[in-house]
Design a binder for these strands. Sequence first.
DNA 1: GATTCATAGCGAAAGGTTTCGCTGTGACGG
DNA 2: CCGTCACAGCGAAACCTTTCGCTATGAATC
Lengths: 140, 140
Amino acid sequence: MTGIRAALGKDIMRELGSSQPTAVELEILRILWDLGPSPVRDIHARLYQAKGTNYSTTVKMLAVMLNKGLLKRNEQATPHRYRAALTRKQAGKSYLSELIEKVYDGSSMSLVLQALTTGKATRQDIAEVRKLLDDMEGQL
Amino acid sequence: MTGIRAALGKDIMRELGSSQPTAVELEILRILWDLGPSPVRDIHARLYQAKGTNYSTTVKMLAVMLNKGLLKRNEQATPHRYRAALTRKQAGKSYLSELIEKVYDGSSMSLVLQALTTGKATRQDIAEVRKLLDDMEGQL
DNA sequence: GATTCATAGCGAAAGGTTTCGCTGTGACGG
DNA sequence: CCGTCACAGCGAAACCTTTCGCTATGAATC
């Protein structure tokens, strides 16, 4: 089943040689995806709950991420409000492409098949996937 | 201006989970999945090609990975032969679960839908997925 | 036996991330 | 005013991963 190749630019980003969301960074992104634009307090509250780390640490991480371009913030408001610079969907796509490329050897279908068997699907879910398949087939 | 894409770059895989293989580690695993059990020389040849790093570095990484249990080796043979302790499939599953959990918020279907639209599928591929869906539905 | 060569490994440096102590600033209540 | 408090940020320590210089060992070669 190697018929399918990810149609995506492999390591475009690696070429640009920059940094990426690391462990804690991803955790913060998730919080922001969840909460929407938020002040440090709120972000910290969540992070603290999950990891028990210090307030300063949260502030610092936000600064680092802001610097990397992973976050944006509104400095007009007080306290400043931080928000993710990319959507969950965009991030997902990046991770997914990388995963397909590096582990599934470029075959997105291998991944799909595995993912399907990995989670529990409802009838609705299945129907939705079928619908998408129909659309895709229609476009061939 | 450090774009989002740039910021997402480097080694996404590694960041998904602390329990997961790191950047270089994954690279080495891929080499072993590809070559099968191999002596350091061969692994290094590939790694050098990709990254230009020193022979000692390769040896060290293998030692580290061996220590972490990511690799096994046959010490009977000379030179020793290293092999991956997990299959590509197992690793894939591990990353996938992590990805679903952390980015797709536990919804494997979200990921499947996105993955489907991310790659290009042939009629055969689609048929295969349909078949799987039928099976799954049958089990509900 | 001495020299050379491939193999194996150690320990520490280099480089990146995550952590936090401590400082500065402005708003607010007494 | 003055002390207190929330907000913001810096710099350096603590911690991993990755890199490599250097050493050790044994087999093959001179």
